[in-house]
Nucleic acid binder design. Structure first.
Length: 584
RNA sequence: GCGCGCAUAGCUCAGUGGAUAGAGCGCUGCCCUCCGGAGGCAGAGGUCGUAGGUUCGAAUCCUACUGCGCGCGCCA
């Protein structure tokens, strides 16, 4: 939480966090303890009749206080009234013992000032214990182009990384290139065959891209298969890199499997396992005793024929990630790899690591539909829908938004007709439209300072754990001045806030919590919902409240609310890798 | 057979202990002398797969069962 003890706490402390502290303090007081019992929560009721916020504190505390929940709720309400003073509009006991809270307009004005006090930092640095995290994702085989499944993986992985970074983690995005082993040999044989005008071998790679590669390499028909394989892999990686770039996905480290064998890291990893008696020879093969750590059975590292398995180099690869200083490894894998989880976690344990710091995330499958009808011929054909074709069809913004819209753990349908549609039916346009509409209002009001470029907000500066706890920078920016203006209007009388204004502010100040929860749950799909909700709250405000043309203090306040909403929408879209247009 | 995942409105999906379970699409009926109608309002629509259990309270946690998906190689 970005609380601060600076000179103007009302301007700079997170209003939700402060409210949560007040509720905890009141509950602690009632039960006569230093801290409130765990389970006490501040909730946002669905129904307006249940107040602005509500707490279950009394029901949690009642057994401890040995009193009935409604009595306890009344006491907590009285304690809260004392703490919050004029900021608390009302505290009502309801139902089985809920305490429904209404906040005064002054509290809402302070809350908006908080949002605007540091627009680049709002919601940033909320990670409670920042870590050095390595996120490996996509890692598509360099023997073919990225397909549908990789698209979901890329959208998820990149958004997760953006959110981690914004929350204060140090993140490295990594792509593991499987440029070693039998599949690469088959790739080389396939290219060679096509270069010589022959059919690819039975176990080879089909597809026009193999022809294209064969044609693009001078004298391919005369080259060794191993040379063709390496050149083909290089070309495929270049193509994959270009596809990711079209999706707005950045990779920090392209890690070649082959290099592990070239410089001894592979041998060292195997030596480590052997020295710890984690591996053993049996039937002419080398095995890893993964069953010791909960895997169904032991796994082969070196086959009877002397070749090493993919698993063995993967172990060396993960050992290398830890050796590079990462405290947490997240691997984003396709659904077909879930059977691999147990053995890889076992391998981490066998290396002496903590398997809890290795988190494989399994991405479920994507089905393509069009107007509700399946467009894939067979369940396997998804592997042959290239991501490039999808970008061409529906655009990168829609691709990223739709791919990350559903929880990664559920099989999802992507409706091409809806994704293509440029109307309010399409959620990505709905959110972008709200952003563009606010930009238009601000232009009309003669406001300077619209974000530059493609409409995305500037990336947040990295936040360390210490910085996250410090007060925000002084108000020397345009936005800071705006916050001061809002604060000034707080001092004056100020108009009575419309219910839609309050609802919009409430949605805005949820943003830091939303970021924290999204990180914790590794669930970027939450931000697509937040974006839609925020856009909807803005639309209600826009309907109910005239921004431009009323008296000056009201206009000033509402323009400030527009700016806060625009910035938060832009930030949300940016974290999803989707553009936030000034006009559309 | 074993393992992992999933099951919520007609459809696609949110919702990891709180009040009368939500959204979008679709459907029905409305609203443009209005800062962007690329928008908004109202309505119909539910046995949260089934059966037990845990507790003040369960879509949510536990157990069993049913259905669907994926995996189960000295492939990657």
């Amino acid at each position: 939480m970005t609380d601060s003890g600076s000179a103007s706490p009302s301007l700079r402390s997170d209003p939700l966090a402060a409210l949560r502290r007040a509720v905890n303090a009141a509950a602690a007081g009632v039960v006569g303890a230093a801290e409130a019992p765990s389970g006490v929560a501040l909730e946002r009721p669905r129904k307006a009749a249940h107040g602005d916020f509500a707490t279950n504190a009394a029901m949690v505390c009642a057994p401890v206080a040995r009193d009935n929940p409604r009595n306890v709720a009344r006491k907590i309400g009285e304690a809260l009234a004392e703490q919050l003073g004029v900021d608390l509009g009302a505290a009502e006991v309801a139902g089985p013992g809920f305490l429904n809270l209404r906040l005064a307009d002054g509290w809402y004005r302070d809350a908006l000032a908080f949002v605007l006090s540091a627009p680049d930092r709002f919601g940033a640095g909320v990670a409670e214990s920042p870590e050095r995290i390595n996120v490996e994702f996509v890692s598509a085989n360099p023997t073919g182009p990225m397909h549908l499944g990789h698209g979901r993986n890329a959208a998820y992985g990149d958004s997760l990384c953006r959110i981690f970074e914004f929350a204060g983690h140090e993140v490295s995005r990594e792509f593991y290139i499987n440029d070693f082993g039998s599949q690469v040999a088959r790739f080389g044989a396939s290219i060679s065959a096509r270069a010589r005008g022959e059919h690819v071998p039975e176990d080879g790679y089909q597809g026009e891209y193999v022809d294209e590669i064969a044609a693009a390499i001078d004298g391919a028909a005369e080259l060794e298969e191993s040379d063709l394989a390496q050149r083909g892999v290089a070309m495929m990686i270049e193509r994959i890199r270009a596809t990711l770039e079209r999706m707005g996905v950045r990779i920090d480290t392209w890690f070649s499997e082959r290099t592990l064998l070239d410089d001894g890291r592979f041998e060292r990893a195997l030596d480590t396992l052997a020295a710890a008696s984690e591996s053993f020879e049996h039937d002419g093969a080398l095995w890893l005793r993964t069953s010791k750590y909960g895997d169904d059975k032991d796994r082969v590292l070196r086959r009877t024929n002397g070749e090493y398995t993919y698993f063995s180099t993967d172990i060396a690869y993960h050992a290398d990630k830890y050796a590079r200083g990462f405290k947490r490894l997240i691997d984003v894998w396709g659904a077909d790899h879930h059977g691999y989880v147990a053995r890889m976690k076992s391998a981490v344990a066998a290396l002496g690591g903590d398997p809890d710091t290795f988190e494989p995330v399994i991405m479920q499958l994507v089905n393509l539909t069009e107007n509700g009808k399946r467009v894939q011929m067979s369940k396997r054909s998804g592997e042959f829908v290239p991501v490039d074709d999808l970008i061409e069809d529906i655009g990168a913004d829609a691709l990223r938004f739709f791919m990350v819209q559903r929880s990664h753990e559920t099989t999802m349908d992507l409706d091409l007709a809806l994704a293509r549609e440029q109307s309010d039916k399409n959620p990505v346009y709905y959110v972008q439209y709200a952003h563009a509409r606010i930009a238009s209002i601000l232009r009309k009001a003669g406001e300077p300072g619209a974000p530059e470029g493609e409409g995305s907000v500037e990336p947040a500066a990295p936040v360390t754990g210490e910085a996250a706890g410090q007060s925000v920078p002084a108000a020397d920016s345009a936005a800071g001045v705006a916050a001061q203006a809002v604060a000034r209007s707080t001092a004056g009388a100020g108009h009575e806030l419309h219910a839609s204004e309050r609802a919009l502010i409430r949605k805005l100040i949820e943003f830091p919590d939303e970021i924290a929860e999204t990180c914790l749950r590794r669930a970027p799909h939450r931000l697509t919902i937040y974006g839609r909700d925020l856009a909807a709250e803005f639309s209600a405000f826009y309907r109910d409240c005239k921004v431009i043309g009323d008296d000056a203090p009201v206009q000033e306040f509402r323009l400030a609310l527009c700016r806060a909403t625009r910035d938060t929408l832009a930030r949300t879209l940016d974290l999803l890798g989707v553009s936030a247009p000034q006009s559309m």
